[in-house]
């Protein structure tokens, strides 16, 4: 892992609209290293758009975005090496096996000595015995795990997850639990969106609500977190903030 500089995510005055639909505006956000930020928000609030901007896939209209210490506009390729993305779709090819998919992505990232690394990440998401199976033959939960394996393959520093809980069974949730705990313990960061209040609050160091084009941190002034306030207070505040947005 490279030395971690600045903040994991640093967003200033971000603005994005699609045609005449404003999605995000005057959005400021910073995520320190070693933390998981969980974003809640109604459908259409812009959660996915924000994540896709951080993932360098959608280009912002205005504002500055830095991920893992690299400016997104100036060094998109540097950002791409330092992020892992888990989206709604697996980004895997149905007609390739898990292993072939991961070997393909290792080569795209130019990883040296990728064979052991592929086995390692497949073990990590407990798909070691499915390595030779075509992705299309796997269950939804397993495909999601394969997508997670793909996202962490190149040892990124920032993990971006868009509603990772969808399609996950109990076993997969436990695997993700473990992975996230290990992830932040080693000083790396996660930004995720979710609709699941319980899971989200258990995973997140901080909880934000996306509403009116901006990220709000309910229940706290600027530095929210379950550790300081206790779970119950944050849950109430998040629920209230979500209700207010409707």
């Amino acid at each position: 892992m490279t030395t971690l500089i600045g903040e994991a995510v640093q967003v200033r005055q971000l603005e994005k609209s699609f045609g005449e639909w404003p999605v995000l505006w005057d959005l400021d956000l910073s995520v320190p290293w070693g933390q998981t930020l969980v974003l809640f928000g109604a459908n259409g609030a812009g959660k996915t758009t924000l994540l896709r901007i951080l993932a360098t896939h959608v280009r912002p209209d205005h504002g500055s975005v830095a991920v893992a210490g690299h400016n997104l506009r100036a060094r998109p390729d540097a950002v791409r090496r330092r992020i892992g993305v888990v989206g709604h779709r697996s980004l895997l090819y149905d007609d390739l096996t898990c292993q072939e998919n991961l070997v393909y992505y290792s080569r795209l990232f130019g990883l040296k000595d990728h064979k052991p690394r592929v086995d390692e990440v497949l073990e990590k998401v407990k798909l070691g015995d499915r390595a030779g199976h075509l992705v299309r033959t796997l269950s939804n939960g397993m495909q999601k795990r394969a997508a997670i394996a793909r996202a962490i393959l190149h040892q990124p520093d920032v993990l971006l997850m868009d509603e990772p809980e969808t399609g996950l069974d109990r076993e997969s949730v436990a695997i993700l639990d473990e992975l996230l705990a290990e992830w932040t313990a080693s000083g790396r960061s996660v930004v995720m969106t979710t609709h699941d209040l319980d899971l989200g609050l258990s995973w997140g160091h901080r909880a934000g609500v996306l509403r009116g084009g901006k990220v709000h941190f309910p229940g706290t002034d600027s530095h929210g977190g379950k550790d300081e306030n206790g779970d119950g207070a944050i849950r109430q505040a998040v629920t209230a903030a979500l209700e207010a947005g409707r």
Binding site: A55, H57, R80, G87, R89, S90, L92, V135
Partner: peptide, 9 residues
């Protein structure tokens, strides 16, 4: 399944 998106990121 978003293979192009995978390439782009």
């Amino acid at each position: 399944q978003g293979g192009l998106e995978g390439l782009l990121i």
